[in-house]
Simulated scan of single mutants.
Amino acid sequence: MHRADRQPSRRAFLDATGATVAAGLLGGCSSGSSQPDRSDPTTAAASTPVPATGRHQAGVTLPHSAQRNLLAVVVDLDTAVAPGPLLAELGEAIHALTAGSDPRLLGLSPGDLTVTVGVGPRLVRTVGAALPGAADLPRFSRERIAPQDRGGDLLIQICADDALLVPVAAAALLDRAGDRVRERWRQYGRRGTEVSIAKGVTAPRNLLGFIDGIVGPHTTAEQERDLWLAGPAAVAGGTLAVLRRMELDLTRFAALSVAEQEAVFGRHRASGVPLSGGTVASGPRLGAKTPDGRYLVPADAHVRRANPTMVGVGLMLRRSYSIDEPVPGVLFISFQNDLRTFTATLTRMDTSDALLPFTTTTASATFLILPGFGQQHPLGSALFG
């Protein structure tokens, strides 16, 4: 049977999408909205569905508390493949999967499944070299990256509380793409236990035992300023993603005393509170000193070196997922509307950040996360239509 004959029809997709767009726009990402208890494994099957359509793609700020499991798949397009039709088909498949109407879900409930699609710099440059997302990531120190693990044409990010959904959805999407794409690399990751850092805002612990992703654009105003692209029209509503897979030297870090570990991060390990005091959600007081003149937050502490006010950039929405294959480490993903937010931060960290010596980057890529899609606007149509 021809591949297209096995898919839900485009008409069915469009008919269903109209209602879902309205639900997605009304649902929003209110920090006060009720969320399932992600610490309870029995809630995975009952997770609240996340609309696939709307102004923004799901999987960035929706759901408000990120799902526990992620699979990032990076692929290249054959040079003869037109991105527009492929992206439109992927959008149809995403809608069918998240709506539960695709038989390739094998009877699984879609739950809070989200799929987020981004396009790499090579594809963006075919439309315009000055567009956001057209620039490649520069190279940084402490990288050991094989050629196939750097860059890529297409990112497919799949997230769900139910770990079974992730590979099933990936297989369905890659089947839809067929031989038009070639896989570069993929990475599974999972988030640690969520810790409350402010009303309606949580962050997980990482493999090093510290709360991860405390600082970020959590309010709607901050997200409009630092996360979402306002223009040009072809990318408005999208954002820029950076992916970095890093090995962690857990053995050497664990050999440090708790006080030494806290000096590396600039926060207390148990609570996440800055070494300068306050609450977990309060910013570190970088000028605060001890009576003998030493900074409470050390000069090379991670929270100082990566602090956006010290770097002179906006906020980035950071997501870290713990990994154990190929070796223990972290898949770091950041979303921002200016690539310099990431590159300037890492450049400053490169000069003196106490955390970096415990890391080695083994994969790296950046993608333009496409604007949201819906009934009248297939995925990618604003850019490749």
Rank of each mutant, 00 (worst) to 15 (best):
V81Q: 02
V81C: 06
V81A: 01
V81K: 07
A82C: 08
A82G: 12
A82K: 10
P83R: 05
P83Y: 07
G84N: 02
G84P: 01
G84Y: 05
G84L: 03
G84F: 03
P85Y: 00
P85S: 07
P85L: 01
P85D: 02
P85I: 00
L86W: 03
L86Q: 06
L86G: 02
L87M: 06
L87C: 03
L87R: 04
L87S: 03
L87V: 08
A88Y: 00
E89Q: 15
E89I: 00
E89Y: 07
L90N: 11
L90P: 09
L90Y: 09
L90Q: 01
L90R: 07
E92K: 00
E92V: 00
E92M: 03
E92N: 08
A93S: 15
A93W: 03
I94Y: 08
I94E: 03
I94H: 06
A96I: 05
A96T: 03
L97V: 11
L97Q: 11
T98E: 13
T98L: 08
T98Q: 15
A99E: 14
A99C: 12
G100C: 09
G100D: 11
G100I: 12
G100Y: 13
S101F: 09
S101Y: 01
S101Q: 12
D102A: 11
P103Y: 04
P103I: 10
R104K: 09
R104E: 11
R104F: 06
L105T: 06
L105R: 01
L105P: 01
L106C: 13
L106A: 14
L106G: 15
G107Y: 03
G107P: 06
G107K: 01
G107F: 01
G107T: 09
L108W: 00
L108A: 04
S109K: 12
S109A: 14
P110E: 10
P110R: 04
P110F: 08
P110T: 10
G111C: 14
G111H: 02
G111V: 01
G111I: 00
G111Q: 00
G111N: 03
G111A: 15
G111E: 04
D112Y: 00
D112Q: 08
D112V: 05
L113Q: 09
L113E: 11
T114P: 04
T114G: 07
T114V: 15
T114R: 06
V115N: 07
V115E: 01
V115H: 05
T116N: 10
T116K: 06
V117Q: 14
V117L: 13
V117H: 13
V117P: 10
G118Y: 11
V119K: 08
V119C: 04
G120D: 06
G120K: 05
P121Y: 02
P121N: 12
R122I: 12
R122S: 12
R122V: 08
R122C: 13
R122D: 15
R122E: 14
R122A: 15
L123F: 05
L123Q: 05
L123V: 04
V124K: 11
V124H: 13
R125C: 09
R125K: 15
R125L: 13
T126C: 10
T126I: 09
T126Q: 15
T126Y: 07
V127P: 04
V127A: 13
G128E: 07
G128S: 09
G128I: 12
A130S: 15
L131F: 03
L131V: 13
L131R: 02
L131S: 04
L131D: 02
P132Y: 03
P132T: 09
P132C: 07
P132Q: 06
P132I: 10
P132G: 13
